[in-house]
């Protein structure tokens, strides 16, 4: 079996988000880049599956769409344990463009399982994995919190309201994974970092494709308002505020 993990290169989740002076872009100077957390968990799970020799997984491949600046991120994926990496050399402008590039890069590679994180922690798009599965005409399961291989079969848990369903897809398929898929991401070891030097990192040139969406403007969030006080004799008003104003319950 061969597993592919699609990886986004995103700013560290603790990054303070600043906008450029004209609000046309997010200022990404001096940002620490990381593997998108959900993608990293997907990779962790893929490596766990590979380490269980009963699963007969020959290869764990990672792919990213990005410029040369994304290379440290994908090199880290190799250091953690992926066998090889592919980088499609173009700016990942939107999910459509990224899915198009990945679909093109892997359509003849016959991966059995393709793992994507449920969203990227930067633009929170939640679209790439679904688009990719459709472009490759493969079945997909989303909201996956567990994946197991039993012989030639793959079983996944899909989160639903109040619980989960166990789903068996026919292979090959795309799993769009969320928290829970693996316990915690791995730290690359010195040996892994050393071995990553030798592992193949293929750079592919992009196919012609357009983004279908574009970010035209940004706004900072509202500054935190002062605490709104509710009278202790009118507690129901708090629930009303949480429901109608905060829209949180």
């Amino acid at each position: 079996m061969k597993i592919l993990i699609c990886i986004s290169n995103v700013p560290d989740t603790t990054t303070k988000i600043k906008l450029t002076g004209d609000n046309k872009a997010v200022d990404l100077a001096n940002v620490q880049w990381i593997i998108n957390p959900w993608d990293e968990l997907a990779l962790t799970r893929a490596l766990e599956l590979k380490e269980n020799t009963a699963n007969a997984i020959d290869k764990v491949t990672v792919i990213t769409v990005g410029n040369a600046g994304a290379e440290p991120t994908i090199r880290k994926a190799l250091a953690i344990g992926a066998d090889n990496a592919i980088r499609v050399n173009t700016d990942p402008k939107d999910a459509w463009l990224v899915a198009t590039q990945i679909a093109n890069a892997v359509k003849s590679e016959n991966f059995d399982i393709i793992l994507c994180g449920i969203e990227s922690s930067d633009y929170n798009g939640s679209a790439m994995g679904g688009m990719l599965s459709e472009m490759l005409d493969l079945p997909s399961v989303s909201s996956v919190s567990k994946i197991e291989i039993e012989g030639a079969k793959v079983k996944v848990n899909r989160e639903i309201a109040g619980g989960f369903e166990t789903v068996e897809p026919s292979l090959p398929f795309v799993a769009i994974v969320q928290k829970g898929i693996a316990k915690e991401p791995r730290i690359p070891s010195m040996r892994g970092i050393m071995m990553a030097r030798q592992k193949p990192l293929t750079v592919l040139e992009p196919v012609a494709a357009d983004a279908l969406t574009g970010f035209v403007n940004y706004e900072p969030p509202m500054p935190k308002a002062a605490c709104k006080m509710v009278d202790a004799d009118n507690v129901a008003q708090l629930v009303d505020l949480l429901h109608h104003e905060a829209k949180i319950i």
């Binding site: 730290i187 070891s189 010195m190 040996r191 050393m194």
Partner: peptide, 19 residues
């Protein structure tokens, strides 16, 4: 030790990290 911090400077031929 598992991460290789306990012999990170040693030559890989002895199992070190060669860093």
């Amino acid at each position: 030790s598992e991460l290789g911090f306990m012999g990170m400077l040693v030559d890989p031929k002895y199992g070190g990290g060669g860093m």
